[in-house]
Amino acid sequence: MTKPFFVEQFGSTMDAVGPVLQAALRSLIEHGWVEPDQKFYAQLCLEEAIVNAVDHGNECDPSKQVRVEMAEEGDICIIRVFDEGRGFSPCEVNQPQLEQLNGRGICLIRWCMEIVTYDKERKCLEMRMRRKGIDRKGCAK
């Protein structure tokens, strides 16, 4: 992976999610990956991935770290969210039953992003999106 244009690491508390999320979004906008007025789906994917890492991965343990990295490879933006949890496979997460309370975050990410993978060894959720592709997909309304 080329040198990331964004790297942020923090202890796993929900209070820390907001500032990192906003900083990551600003960075995506500054680097031309997302239009400022069409950031809904980028914000959604970042929030779902970071909250999952903090809450489900690290179980809100402030001593465990979450790292967010973003890098570009040609027309693709790679977003990686690392945690210190037990890991999971996004392919094995099915659409939840209608009244089931949880499990929709990863479904939303899979819908929005081109490719979603999880590296169990590095405990890293990787999301790939094309330049402004996420906006076009979201804006197909």
Partner: peptide, 12 residues
């Protein structure tokens, strides 16, 4: 106050 708490305070 740890760093992330500072950040959250700023955020608010």
């Amino acid at each position: 106050m740890p760093g992330d708490a500072h950040a959250a305070q700023r955020y608010r």
